[in-house]
Design a protein around this nucleic acid. Sequence first.
DNA 1: TTGATAGTTTGAATACTATCAAACTATCAA
DNA 2: TTGATAGTTTGATAGTATTCAAACTATCAA
Lengths: 93, 93
Amino acid sequence: MSQDVFKALSDPTRREILRMLRKRPMPAGELSEVFAMTKGSLSHHFNILKNAGLVRCERRGQFQVYSLNTSVFEETLAMLVDLFGSERKRKRS
Amino acid sequence: MSQDVFKALSDPTRREILRMLRKRPMPAGELSEVFAMTKGSLSHHFNILKNAGLVRCERRGQFQVYSLNTSVFEETLAMLVDLFGSERKRKRS
DNA sequence: TTGATAGTTTGAATACTATCAAACTATCAA
DNA sequence: TTGATAGTTTGATAGTATTCAAACTATCAA
């Protein structure tokens, strides 16, 4: 539920969704206007992003408004750093 | 060839390979010892990491020695930052 | 209520990925 | 050469992802 972040980021559509949400929270419909894809397919992507903790979703009347969950951003950064070990704790042989 | 980084990072085996290479460059065989997987399967993962630019590979005698390509690390960080827009250039409406 | 709008969920088709076993290539050592 | 070791590539299979169309749920407005 939290380690699937890279999986969630591995799809171009989902990355573009994040880039759009970067500007401001948006309802599902507005997001789906810019993708050549059915609303059902987009909803599927929203779910994956939500399960990865990358976005949150809040109902406002008829609208489901999606927004970035920036706190997970830091965790994702930390995971990347862990993969590459950028803190240089390399012991010289 | 360079945007497939997230795809490459989306697999747990490949992330573990990166974590191991973090310590030091290693030949394919040594890496494949710690995975419950054939050498062929590992080789497949090496290819994906190589195509994403995350690792490099150099022959030393009979050995193919893999190592981290840390320069791509920075690019990957930049891509993450791009996705989340952490530079706060948010214009207050 | 009913109808319209906004979105999700389901079921099926298609495409992609991970894996294995087996065949293959490359280097070294005799 | 030949044999042994190290690794890659290939072909097949099983599992996973993406997508669509269609059915469904929820809210609003009359």
